[in-house]
Design a protein around this nucleic acid. Sequence first.
DNA 1: GATTTAACTGAACAAACGTTCAAATCAAAG
DNA 2: CTTTGATTTGAACGTTTGTTCAGTTAAATC
Lengths: 196, 196
Amino acid sequence: MARTQGSHSDITGPRIRAAALRLFAQDGYAAVSMRQIAKDVGVQAGALYNYTPDKQSLLYELLRGHMDDLLTAREAEASKQLEPLAALEGFVRFHIGFHVARPDEVFIAYMELRSLNAENFTQVESLRRRYENELEGILQRGLESGAFSVDDAKIATLAVIAMLTGVNTWYRAGGRLSLAEVETIYWNMVKRAVVA
Amino acid sequence: MARTQGSHSDITGPRIRAAALRLFAQDGYAAVSMRQIAKDVGVQAGALYNYTPDKQSLLYELLRGHMDDLLTAREAEASKQLEPLAALEGFVRFHIGFHVARPDEVFIAYMELRSLNAENFTQVESLRRRYENELEGILQRGLESGAFSVDDAKIATLAVIAMLTGVNTWYRAGGRLSLAEVETIYWNMVKRAVVA
DNA sequence: GATTTAACTGAACAAACGTTCAAATCAAAG
DNA sequence: CTTTGATTTGAACGTTTGTTCAGTTAAATC
């Protein structure tokens, strides 16, 4: 046997990435074998290498793609150019909405950074830094205008992001609270923690 | 060759656990082999099995021990029985201090939960739930007394813990800020987010 | 000093790992 | 219908994996 009926790279490629994403999120990069990914797709392990040079690149492309999506989506939001308070609310709601919609991507973006080799790690890390700088910029402008008051802008940035990303550990669509309610609850806490 | 000079279970045992802890935190449970742990201790892989029945138990004992330490230390604090505001400040400072002092333990307690088998996972998870209930109890009492105001006590609990544990991602002893300063900065944010 | 017990080595086991590649088969183009 | 190119199989490779155990040596006991 060889090429199978209906096989096409436009179909198999995305399915491989989807399977890798799900399995990496579920069991961790190191614990998932190429044969498991292949089995999930319904293909032999060797076929994966038409789509990725190696396992490491498969992980990197997933993380890289996720960070690109995040920054692109954020740019669309940020271009609205609002005063600090509205900008902060926009960031909080955007962050929660974006992350809650992509639990697997978010999970591996945080958990599997260390599974990247040095070069790939640096790339992804710099994208994360760029995203954090978005929030830090908002806080900084609010401090200068007197709208916000925090002891340390950088620490407040990390504290707020940690708090917001924590939503992913418990939120499930169709649960007790709607997404809008969750956003509002967190926005209230952030507002009170940061606004003068 | 066989038993080596100076070998003793009181020495080798702790060294094995320390090596496993450090390596699991650094590279992840699945990515660390028993031979790597053994090499770090200066022993052959077979010798590890005098101290643990298998690799899984080695991880479980580390996580279980960490959670026991956390709850024991917390009980000493909590027995002070304070009114909500002081109790909340006590919790914030305790949480940061305890976690910052044990970066490796905290890291694997969060990252390697999924590497536990079902039974061990349930055990560790219930200990975590008990710890979260400490904070939730404080918030609940503060809500009843009118000292606090949050939309949802359970969510506020998770939000605060996520925010506080986030300190471990950036704090390094000997850095720009002292531990006391970090505690105060976070306490200020929590206070403002929660206190009426 | 002899004997018992504790601690470790070193080799071995089957299974699983990431990766490669010639051969085979299907899809698309002419 | 033939040819070309895209896609997958299935077997194989050299390593590494967790774990076991008979044999050996040091420490502890008497």
